[in-house]
Design a binder for these strands. Structure first.
Lengths: 198, 198
DNA sequence: TTTTGTTGATTGACGGATCAATCAAAACTA
DNA sequence: TAGTTTTGATTGATCCGTCAATCAACAAAA
């Protein structure tokens, strides 16, 4: 049936299964057999395509980062003003595609694992830098650079904090409240900057 | 040599060793043998006193929570005004005793583990409630209750977010910057509330 | 004072289970 | 057939929890 090579298909299926398994278990403490089983293949095949478990986990994280990055790029492209750019980044972070239990659990687990794995740490650092840069691209035109840097740091910390707190609560994701909280912070920062300028 | 019971001594030593091991490894993925070795005893003894690994980890988390709680109580007792109460909680969260690499790593690891362990989840929920309550005890006298609730949520999220971001960066803890960021948020919230009241 | 239990503290060794990774062979496709 | 895809079986390592045995201190009895 498949006239195309199986490799990309299997890799993607295994990555999706890894996200599912991580979400179900709430940590990276998942077995290759579990992941492979969810993908409908044997654990040996997972090793065949990824070589080692760490490689599969790294690929999974890259996939999550890439998806977030793609959403962010798209939202930024549609933003007409600097202010809209900042709001776009905030909105994307809590969009239904990102603010899901499995994804939130994966983020948390990857943060922990990054303390041991240099590869994962590098990936998370890249994410942090990109988030900061995306935020600054709008903020820097709305307030002086030092104030913009502080606001970006605060927004980033708020997003991460709301993620971690969301992982703890087992109720449904309250994305709207999270966005409102961060937007409120942004509005206060902008008002303060405007006040200082006058 | 010791004519006193060894139990409390050993339990405390093992808890300290567990914090040390968790900090060194950056996750709860530590072996009983490692913990026991750091405490200078055999792994069998750790099992003798705690029964199971999960019990030791739960006791470790209780210890961390208790230490934070004691510091918070002390800081609150010395706070003369509602505003000082809020600042006291913020300051304690980033005090040298709390904002250490091992403790931050432990927090992060416990957040992950809480997704699997009902005991740890309960402990973290208690912590979240107490933090919220401590913050509200000051905020509620500085602004209307709904605004105070939002501010408390924001401050709590900021604290957690700064913790997680601190775990990622391997540089020394920048506690002063963290306190300044949260204090800035608090000041903005207070100013906005005062503005709405007039 | 010696002798003889008694109890708590501690450990080395081990069973049992889990899991990542490997490999040779089977199934499938062209 | 020749190449690719897939797997079952196996291995080696790790680790939790248990158990029988040792050791030191102390108490009771002789």
């Amino acid at each position: 049936m498949p006239r195309t090579g199986m490799e990309p298909v299997r890799r993607q299926a295994l990555i999706d299964a890894a996200i599912e398994a991580i979400g179900a278990r709430g940590s990276l403490d998942v077995t290759m057999a579990d992941i492979a089983g969810r993908a409908g293949v044997s654990s040996a095949l997972a090793h065949h395509y990824f070589g080692a478990k760490e490689a599969l986990l790294a690929a999974t994280m890259r996939h999550i980062l890439a998806a977030l990055g793609a959403d962010a790029r798209q939202a930024l492209a549609a933003a007409a003003s600097p202010r809209a750019r900042v709001s776009a980044i905030i909105r994307v972070s809590f969009s239904p595609a990102q603010f899901r239990p499995e994804i939130v659990a994966a983020w948390l687990a990857f943060y922990v694992e990054a303390q041991r794995s240099a590869v994962l740490k590098r990936l998370l650092t890249v994410y942090a830098r990109r988030l900061r840069s995306d935020l600054m691209s709008g903020l820097v035109r709305l307030m002086p650079r030092p104030a913009a840097a502080r606001a970006a740091e605060g927004i980033a910390a708020l997003i991460d904090g709301l993620y971690i707190r969301h992982a703890l609560a087992d109720r449904a994701p309250d994305a709207a409240a999270a966005v409102a909280l961060v937007e409120d912070y942004l509005a206060l920062q902008l008002a303060a900057a405007a006040g200082r300028a006058s």
